[in-house]
Design a protein around this nucleic acid. Sequence first.
RNA 1: GCCCCCGUAGCUCAGUGGAUAGAGCAUCCCCCUCCUAAGGGGAGGGUCACACGUUCGAUUCGUGUCGGGGGCACCA
Length: 587
Amino acid sequence: MPASPAPAYLDPQSRLIALLEQALRQVAAEVATNLPLQVELERPKQASHGDFACNVAMQLGKAMKRNPRELAQAVIAALPASDLLEKAEIAGPGFINLFLKPAAWQGVAAEVLAQADAYGSGNLGRGAKVQIEFVSANPTGPLHVGHGRGAAFGASLSNVLKMAGYEVQREYYVNDAGRQMDILALSTWLRYLALCGEVVPFPGNAYQGDYVSTMADGIYALHQDRYQRPTAAVMKGVAAAEEDAEAHLDALIANAKSLLGPDYAYIHGYALEEQLGDCRNDLTEFGVTFDTWFSEKTLHESGLIDRAVEQMKKHGHLYQQDGALWFRSTAFGDEKDRVVRRENGSYTYFAADIAYHINKFERGFDRVLDVWGADHHGYIPRVKGALTAAGLDADRLTVALVQFAVLYRNGQKASMSTRSGQYVTLRELRNEVGNDAARFFYVLRKSEQHLDFDLDLAKSQSNDNPVYYIQYAHARICSVLNSWGGLERDLLDADSGLLQEPRELALLKRLAEFPETINTAARELSPHVIAYYLKELAADLHGLYVACQFLVADEALKQARLLLIAATRQVLNSGLALLGVSAPEKM
RNA sequence: GCCCCCGUAGCUCAGUGGAUAGAGCAUCCCCCUCCUAAGGGGAGGGUCACACGUUCGAUUCGUGUCGGGGGCACCA
C-alpha cells in the first residue's frame, strides 16, 4: 500500500527562523537594504528571556546605523501570524525574545516515537564521504589507556557523523612494516631461543612484556626448536649494548634476518598476527570496530611510496643532501626539512605516511579525518605540506588531537610508566570499571583537554557517577512502562496537549534539542556534547519523575505522560548508543 | 629557544561576541503511605590567571606576561 506522505514535521526552531526571515525581508524592503538576512537563534540562559532570543536587530542596527530597538520593533510588527508564538518582546539593547506556546513543543514527543532511532538524524553532512582513521597503535603490544581514549573518541565521533548525514568509513592504519615490528619479532625470537636452551642476553630496550614470552611459548609449542640458532651466531659482530643500545638492537635484528632467512618472516608474521588479533579483540569488546585495517606494508610492496615520492619530486619539492632524500617542508610552514629516504636507502615512516595520505585522497573521500595523540601535533604541518607538495588540497584533511588521559585512584595518580612494559592496559581498565563507564568517561571531556580519569568514581554505583545517573533514568522509564504493560505505538495518538506542567514542558524542550545537539557535536567534532546533553536530559527526567505520577487514573493524561517518557527513553537510548554505552532496562 | 593545548566555584569540568557565567562533587538544610531515593528541592560559594587592545558590548577575539601539561629524530 502506498505510504501516505507523513505531514512534514518541522521543529519549532526551524519554523521560527522562517518566520523571522520573512519578517526581516519585509523590514529590509522598507528600508531598501540588501544586507544578508541570516537569522540565528540562541537559547537564552534565563527562562524570563523566552524560549529563543534573536540578536539580528543589533547586528543590522550596526550595519544600517539605526537604533536596534526600533529595528526590533519593526521586525516584531512584521512577524506573520503563527500558532507557534505566544509573544515576542524587545529586551535589553535590542534582543527579540520569543516565547512559544506549549503547542510548539507538545508535538515533539510523538515525533520522537514515530521516527524512533532516526530521530536526531540530520543532513549536515549531505552524504559527503568522510574517512576517519583512529587508534592505529603499533601492533607491538597491548593497547594502553591512552589508546583507549582515542578509540572511544573516534568510535563515538564516527557514530555522531553518521547520524549527522555523513557517509563514514572507519580505518585503522597498521604499522606492520617498521623497525618497531622488527624489534618485536626479535624480542619474541630471543625469548624463544631461551626456551630452546640458548643462553642469550635480552636487551633492555627490547620489548619486556610478558606477552612476548607468551608468543615465544606459542611458537615453541608449534615448532619446537625449528627456529633455534646458536647464540654465538646470534651475537656475532654485535657491539655491546652499553655503547649504543639502538645500534646493538639493529645489529641483532640484522643477524636474525640473515640467520633465519625466510623463517624470519614467519616469526615476524606470528608476532604481528598475535598482537593485531589481541588489539582487534580488545577493541571489539570495547564496542569499537573498523571497516578497514590498512597495512603499511602494502604501501611499500605496491610501490605506492615510490610513486608518492616521484609525485613530490615532479613538483620540485625534494632534494638530495648528505646521502638522504629530503622534503623541503619548510616551504609549507614546517620548522625544518624532513628526510623522506634515509642514507641507507630505506624510506622513513614519514614517506609511508605521505603515500598513505595520498592514497586516502585518491580513494575518493570528500574529507579525511585523522585522530592523533596530542604528542603528534608537530607532525601536522609536514603531512599537510606533503599533500600540498603532491598537488592535493590539504584542507580536506582534518587532524583531531586527543590529549592524554591520566588515571586517578584514591585521589592519587595511578602509575603509568611506559618503561619495562608496566603501563596500565585498556583491558585492565575495562575489567576494572566496565565498558560503559570507560566509554563514557573517555568522552566526557573535550578531546583537547587533559583527562583526569577517576577510577573510583567510574566504578562507584552511586548517584555521583554520571553513567549510572543517565542509565538509571532509562531504567526508571522502562520500569514504569513495564508496570503499565501497554504497547508503545498506541501512545502515538495520546493528547499531548495535556502536557502542561513546567517539568513536562522542560522535558519536551530538551527532546527537541537533540537534533541540534547532534549537529553541534558533528560540526565541532565533539562527542562530549552528547554526554553533557544526556546528563541534562536525565536530570529533566528525574525531576519530572519525582514531581509527578505517570500511571494516573485519568486515562488521557496517563497516555500523554507515557508518551512523553517513552519518547525520553528513545532519545536516551539513541544518545547512549552514540557513545557506545548500554541502556539497561533494569538496574 | 620555537610550536600546540590548558588556566572559569574548595575539587572535577561545561559554556558563550551579548542581558544576573552554569553542572556534578564537597559543605549545610529539607523531601519516600507513591511507577526503582542509583532520585528530587533549597542555601552558601566567582576579579572567568593577569594586563593592554578591537567592539555598542569581551569570560569568549587579538597581543603580551605569569602559571600547568605536551611536542620539537635519517623513531614510529
